[in-house]
């Protein structure tokens, strides 16, 4: 009942990858308590769907995908969206970006098209090359470029042009 036979040791998996999932969730969600909850939820989902993983990709790739999807869903949650709009102070730590830019990006991500939001996270927040983002999204590099371009176009229409995130390196 406590562990599923034949699956990896949750303790070892958590100790190896938990910090990565937490840091990633913190950057996406901005609040420690949310990041902590997200980390726990990601590992629960991963352990429960371990049978879907076997040999499909690297563990890191899979965890990035699950974490991104979970956090974006959290951002898109109606109550969280209202909270983001009302939030004035961020508690982001150890970030190279200004807190207001991250907050602005989160607001955009909470309303953007799902695929475009994922591409924007990988490219802008994670600093991935289009090739890396393509691997995680399961699409071509060209499609990643299209997603990102559409996201920017949409963000401009949302009146975000003056603060839009700029990817300085591909």
């Amino acid at each position: 009942m406590a562990t599923v036979s034949g699956t990896p040791d949750i303790g070892a998996l958590f100790r190896l990858h938990g910090p990565m999932v937490y840091r990633r969730a913190l950057r996406l969600l901005g609040r420690k308590e949310d990041a902590e909850e997200a980390t726990q939820e990601v590992f629960i989902r991963v352990m429960r769907s371990m049978h879907e993983f076997q040999g499909r990709s690297s563990v890191t790739t899979w965890l990035y995908q699950v974490t991104t999807n979970y956090c974006l869903n959290q951002l898109r949650d109606h109550s969280r969206r209202r909270q983001l709009l009302a939030e004035n102070v961020l508690r982001e730590e150890n970030s190279s970006a200004s807190e207001s830019d991250l907050l602005h990006l989160r607001r955009l991500l909470s309303e953007a098209d799902e695929q475009q939001a994922r591409a924007a996270v990988y490219v802008y927040l994670d600093g991935m090359s289009h090739e890396e983002a393509a691997e995680l999204l399961g699409v071509s590099k060209r499609t990643v470029g299209n997603f990102v371009e559409r996201f920017l176009t949409w963000a401009r229409q949302r009146g975000a042009e003056s603060d839009r995130p700029k990817k300085e390196s591909a």
Binding site: L105, Y124, G127, L136, E168
Partner: peptide, 24 residues
């Protein structure tokens, strides 16, 4: 404003995480 960690031209968090996990 750059949102990603590291300087322009630096590897992504994803690349470093995979390096740390021994997956490269």
């Amino acid at each position: 404003m750059r949102l990603a960690s590291g300087n322009p031209g630096c590897p992504s968090d994803f690349a470093l995480d995979r390096l740390q996990a021994g997956e490269l």
